[in-house]
Computed example of a mutant assay.
Amino acid sequence: MGNDDTTLNQLQSEVDDWIQNIGVRYFSELTNLAILMEEVGELSRLMARKYGDQSFKSGESEDNIPNEIGDILFVLTCLANQMGISLQDAIRATIKKNTKRDIDRHKNNPKL
């Protein structure tokens, strides 16, 4: 990616360019969903070892956590591209929804 100020729209364009020029074509949406779940599982495995009760296996490292998050973002971006969804619009809508729903919820939660 070009610089640290890349927008989500630019990210989607860059991933699409990569798919068209290197990846040949998008996998089907269902295949990409399965790949996304696989990548989330890989992140989960590392998180369980770093923050949970499991220990790292020989050759495993918490250093791979950023790579797994990158893999998740890449596949999620592929899915958004395939379905014509703007990640930027989607996250803005989610923040708006969560703000309306949770404006006082967390402030009033004695567990927090």
Rank of each mutant, 00 (worst) to 15 (best):
M1R: 02
G2A: 14
D4N: 13
T6M: 14
L8D: 00
L8Y: 11
N9Y: 05
N9Q: 03
L11G: 01
L11D: 02
L11K: 10
Q12K: 00
S13Y: 07
W18N: 14
I22C: 09
I22S: 12
I22P: 00
I22E: 13
V24N: 05
Y26P: 12
Y26E: 12
S28T: 15
L30R: 14
L33Q: 09
E38Q: 02
G41C: 07
S44E: 11
R45Y: 06
L46T: 00
M47L: 14
A48E: 08
R49L: 09
Q54T: 14
S55Y: 09
F56I: 10
K57P: 03
K57A: 09
E60T: 00
D63Q: 09
I65A: 03
I65M: 03
P66I: 07
I69S: 02
G70K: 03
D71G: 05
V75F: 07
C78I: 08
L79D: 00
L79Q: 09
N81W: 11
I85C: 01
I85L: 06
S86E: 00
L87R: 01
L87Q: 04
D89F: 03
T94H: 08
I95M: 03
I95C: 03
K96I: 04
K97G: 01
D102S: 05
I103F: 14
D104H: 15
N108K: 15
N108P: 13
P110T: 14
K111V: 15
